[in-house]
Design a protein around this nucleic acid. Structure first.
Lengths: 343, 343
DNA sequence: TTTGGAAATGTAACGGCTTACATTATATCA
DNA sequence: TGATATAATGTAAGCCGTTACATTTCCAAA
């Protein structure tokens, strides 16, 4: 019912400028193919009329959108924001626009979003993690839309990815934790269904336990969604259990901060009574009190590299090479030696 | 150069199904106008072929996209995330899709994003705050794209908005602060250029000071960008000045948390030595230590209402009514009485 | 059997832009 | 000055859906 007051089109501009639509189009897309006088004239008219090219028509005619879609699990916490920011900035340097969609960690919504972005003409897609219905990969195949997986790097995976080895990273951290004398470990994880990163982290800790002579089955494991509140709840449960762990790994910093808050409320001292370990190293981790020991994920670097790879692929057809980045352990204040005086 | 393996089109489906394109189109958009046998047949073929309608073509033909754009200053902190989440959820209920773009608080980028979303066929736009180049409003006018302003409610504004009165909210908080004996106040603000919310908050504090008999000019005022780091830096500067304030207002919780961190590093006790007040009440505020006294902004409600208003406007032409929501003061631990023993 | 109307389907114009190809204007050189 | 290369512009055929309108099919009632 919106009273569209006839949006100006290329034709209107062309008519007003006394040139053909082709010339106007060239003014916009290949300015140097047009004589200066014509160009200036046309540009003025475009401004006067408030003309703006219709994206749909343009995409259809050019069979190219210069748009790359990014589908992330959530925007509600900063975990993906930084990587995405870098992704976007780099993309822009290459003349691409980013379209974001979020899935709330739900595979169905993710599928829907993928279809939506493809329909919108995304020239390529950035996806988080490998694990999804093969049907989706097939769909992308038929549509001819390349997809790059990031935030994960699984050695030997079929699909190229730019990310880090989640398993190895947490393995390293767990090993350090165990060295400090911790034997009773717990993990507050994201839901592992359709989440290869979460699975890898789970396995990584278990591997470290095995290699250190601990029984991996003794790892207390809670799956939850990714909110501060959830972290607090899970932590409380852990602390009230009769096999209270001395070190609690968290699937991410958000969860860890929730755990930290809960510890404070319960008057449990961190790290004296219990150590808490995060994952991601978002800003929150430094601000938390005590500051969070965590695994630093190279968000920006991942985003940047992904953008370059995708841009080059779309523009030049350069094949995408898998890149393994390194996650780094960051020791701050929430990790300490295991308490010995407990039962 | 991407080897598009001929994306299937409506024609392909029609040919394969032995029907006309119109019938296929109807199967998709008005299934009940098609006989069941035809429909099933067509749907199967669609799946086999992996057909997905081309958004651009669809938008052009239907002259409607069912897409509403949202342009926010930043995704890097959670301030807008929650409101947007609610916006999106509600939009979805009405059959609309949301497209987000962020501006890094830069007017030029905002303009660019507005044009981009309009070009992409957004049926309407959600904007943060009133203040922007009038040229942009004119552009939206010619393009026939309605825009709704949110996150702000300025009484008597020409343009309808759904938000809260930034000035009044902080006025109320400042009045409480002054009641606690604070006379030396400071404000760490976002840049106020082209940011009516920031301006309103500045004015609100000054109004409260005036009304309480304080000189508004004594308010120490620092403008900065919106990162934790910036909050810390600004706070440090304030604490090192020779007119050290006893209460520091922050433009948002992110800045406040930065200030808090700095205070900890400088061994300044909060709230004994200095009070810190945030704005927004994002999750961070509860997690901070000490927990942040702040102004609770009804993010979700704003998002929801905005979605309803916009959806109804686009679908039925229902005029958009301005709505004033209430912000609420949340007293936690970072606000205390002014210290009396200081010079 | 005929007939009228509803249901199902088909036809084709249209939407706004790009671009290959054709045409015209301008500059360059012998 | 005329021939020719080059720059500038124009023409018109798509791109892929939707939808008004036309046509065909089907069924029930007469």
């Amino acid at each position: 019912m919106s009273l569209k007051p006839h949006t100006p089109t290329l034709h209107d501009v062309a008519a007003a400028a006394g040139v053909s639509t082709a010339t106007v189009s060239r003014c916009l897309n290949f300015p140097d193919q047009v004589s200066e006088s014509t160009r200036i004239n046309v540009i003025c008219i475009i401004n006067d009329l408030g003309y703006s090219p219709n994206f749909g028509a343009k995409a259809m005619a050019a069979r190219r959108t210069n748009t790359i879609g990014a589908i992330i699990p959530t925007m509600e916490n900063a975990i993906f924001a930084r990587g995405l920011q870098a992704f976007q900035e780099e993309l822009r340097l290459h003349g691409f626009t980013m379209l974001v969609a979020s899935t709330s960690y739900c595979p169905n919504i993710e599928e829907e979003q993928i279809r939506s972005l493809v329909a919108r003409g995304a020239d390529a897609l950035l996806l988080i993690g490998h694990e999804r219905d093969p049907e989706i990969y097939r769909f992308l195949q038929t549509q001819g839309v390349p997809a790059l997986v990031t935030w994960a790097f699984t050695p030997g995976s079929v699909r190229p990815s730019i990310g880090f080895n989640n398993r190895a990273a947490i393995y390293e951290m767990a090993t350090e934790v165990i060295k400090l004398g911790h034997t009773k470990l717990a993990l507050i994880s994201a839901e592992t269904a359709m989440n290869d990163r979460a699975k890898a982290r789970h396995v990584g800790i278990q591997n470290a336990m095995t290699d250190a002579g601990l029984k991996p089955s003794s790892l207390q494991f809670i799956e939850t969604t990714y909110n501060i509140e959830d972290g607090a709840n899970a932590f409380e449960k852990l602390m009230k259990s009769d096999t209270r762990p001395t070190a609690v790994f968290c699937g991410n910093d958000v969860l860890a901060v929730g755990a930290l808050r809960c510890a404070r409320e319960m008057k449990i001292s961190v790290p004296d009574d219990v150590s808490i370990i995060g994952f991601d190293d978002i800003e929150l981790a430094q601000v938390a009190y005590p500051a969070l020991t965590t695994v630093h994920v190279p968000h920006r670097e991942m985003g940047r590299r992904a953008a370059i790879a995708l841009a080059n692929y779309v523009k030049e057809g350069t094949p995408i090479k898998a890149v393994e980045l390194k996650a780094r352990l960051v020791f701050r204040e929430t990790l300490g030696p295991a308490r010995k005086d407990l039962p």
